[in-house]
Simulated scan of single mutants.
Amino acid sequence: MEASDPAFPVRHTALSSVIKGHKTEIVISSYEDHFLVIATQIGAMGTILQARKEESVSVDSTFSVTVVFGKRDEPMLVACARQLIEHISNSGSSKALVLSLGLRDHSLGTLKGIVSAVVEKLVEVT
């Protein structure tokens, strides 16, 4: 299921998918300076992370990811946010990312499925 209401002032897309046996709802919104991505299997926001590309004079890009609310001891959630912000940056956008992950399963397979689904749909809101 996909949805994008042209009357809504923020560009967005939504999808529903089964990832590792769990129904997963994903909403991606594009604001002026941020992307908001909500991925939930529990019907709630879950852990909220913020990720951004750090401006520097060096050639190598650096990224920062912080947990705003929720599980601070889940390195896989941080890795998911880092993968997404790297993709956003590599696609030419300078927007930061706010990511909400309400997941039943924090396995590598689940998080790869979320990253894959978001990257595929991110084009629709840019």
Rank of each mutant, 00 (worst) to 15 (best):
L49P: 07
K53V: 07
V37I: 15
I26N: 15
V115C: 15
D105L: 10
I114W: 04
S107Q: 11
S64M: 03
T24F: 01
I28Q: 15
V67I: 01
V18W: 02
S17C: 10
K20M: 05
A3E: 04
V57E: 07
G109L: 06
S89D: 12
G113F: 08
F69A: 11
G70L: 06
K121E: 12
C80M: 00
E74F: 10
M1S: 11
L36Q: 04
C80K: 04
S107C: 13
L101D: 02
G109A: 14
L111P: 03
V68L: 12
E54D: 02
T126F: 03
S94E: 14
V65S: 02
N90T: 06
V119H: 10
A3T: 14
L49R: 06
E124H: 14
P9S: 13
V123L: 07
A3S: 07
A44K: 13
L84V: 07
T40Q: 02
L36F: 13
D33P: 01
V57H: 00
D5V: 13
L108A: 04
H34A: 01
A81I: 08
M76V: 05
L36I: 00
I48W: 06
P6Y: 13
G70H: 11
S58M: 09
E32F: 11
V123N: 08
V27F: 14
Q83E: 10
E2K: 00
D33M: 07
K53D: 08
I42S: 08
E74I: 08
E86G: 03
G102A: 10
V68G: 09
V118L: 06
R11Y: 04
T126I: 07
S89Y: 10
V98M: 12
A96K: 14
I85D: 05
T13S: 06
K121C: 06
P75Q: 13
K20E: 05
G70A: 03
V65M: 01
S107K: 11
E124Y: 09
T110L: 15
D73H: 05
V125W: 08
Y31L: 14
S91N: 10
E25A: 07
S30T: 00
A3F: 15
